[in-house]
Design a protein around this nucleic acid. Structure first.
Ligand code: FES
Ligand code: FES
Lengths: 159, 159
DNA sequence: GCAAAGTTGATAAAAATACTCGGGATTAAG
DNA sequence: CTTAATCCCGAGTATTTTTATCAACTTTGC
């Protein structure tokens, strides 16, 4: 029951983007420095975010990333799903195929538990928007850099 | 956001135990056959369950495992926590130490999300008891064997 | 005593995760 | 037109976690 670094770093990164995009497209280099995540890893994460339609990119010099939608419309579920794939405590909650192989007609006991977890989590994560996280992080003043430098554990840092 | 085989197999196994312990101590060999999980892997899982106080063991010939408490008092949270460790989407929700290093005074934005997830999940899982799962599985008649043989995906089976 | 169990610790194999690297394409600015 | 900043993409590698398996040992009922 753990969120991988993709989700953890990625959420931090997109909050950083939300906090800064008023200045125009934000290059990953900036986010990398503020959040102390390697630029190369960020590229991977933003590729996923872009493919899911959460951010858009502007190429070339002075390019960077922008949110593709207003922060009010982007939820934590959108973000984590883009980065980590669908929320599925077990594979069988995703595919009908597997379901048929598994449970004589919908009656696998444990499956109900996994589905409960999935639905509960989806509802919860869908109820938190990027706008809210942005607002919260701004309430704390301009400590962005300080906070983020130490804000995750197994962070190898930028070379 | 995934539950490992420890949790998935383990939950199935303890439901199986709950369904059968009326006959006395159940040896792992039995559960192994019904659930198609290797006896040796089950040993590991039941070691965790025993150390967490959810089951008790009887050694020697005619030995086996019994629930250590009534199924009404054992929750899915107890079981999954015993098997997979504490529910913690990120490490920092567990230790105050890490917290201090991380967020100047309780203000790390993402941390709030991880804590929400943790608390939500704990509440949900704590609301489902083993007794309920047992009851459900019995409602479906005596299909235990059929169900369980195909009831999990990456199951290598018993040699 | 012997066979059926649980107990323990080590270890090996497989999979997933967490990155890194290098080269290419695009574009603003000078 | 050239250069530097930037995104883009596909591989490749290193590390960690997961998923088991094995062997030796202890306990106990018969
Ligand atoms: S407190 Fe855990 S990421 Fe900041
Ligand atoms: S349907 Fe997934 S374990 Fe049975």
């Amino acid at each position: 029951m753990r969120i991988s670094t993709r989700g953890r770093y990625g959420l931090r990164a997109i909050i950083d983007l939300a906090n800064n995009e008023y200045r125009g497209a934000i290059p990953l280099r900036e986010i990398s420095q503020r959040q102390n995540i390697s630029e190369q890893y960020l590229e991977q994460l933003f590729a996923s975010l872009r493919k899911s339609g959460l951010v858009k990119s502007i190429r070339g010099a002075h390019g960077g990333y922008l949110l593709n939608d207003s922060p009010e419309k982007i939820t934590v579920k959108d973000i984590l799903t883009a980065l980590e794939g669908p929320i599925a405590p077990a594979d069988c909650v995703l595919s009908e195929d597997i379901l048929e192989k598994c449970n004589n007609g919908g009656n696998c006991v444990t499956r109900k538990v996994w589905i409960m977890i999935k639905e509960n989590l989806e509802e919860l994560l869908d109820s938190v928007t990027l706008a809210e996280l942005k607002a919260e992080s701004q309430n704390w003043g301009d400590y962005d850099q300080l906070i983020s430098y130490s804000s995750d554990m197994n962070n190898k840092g930028v070379k």
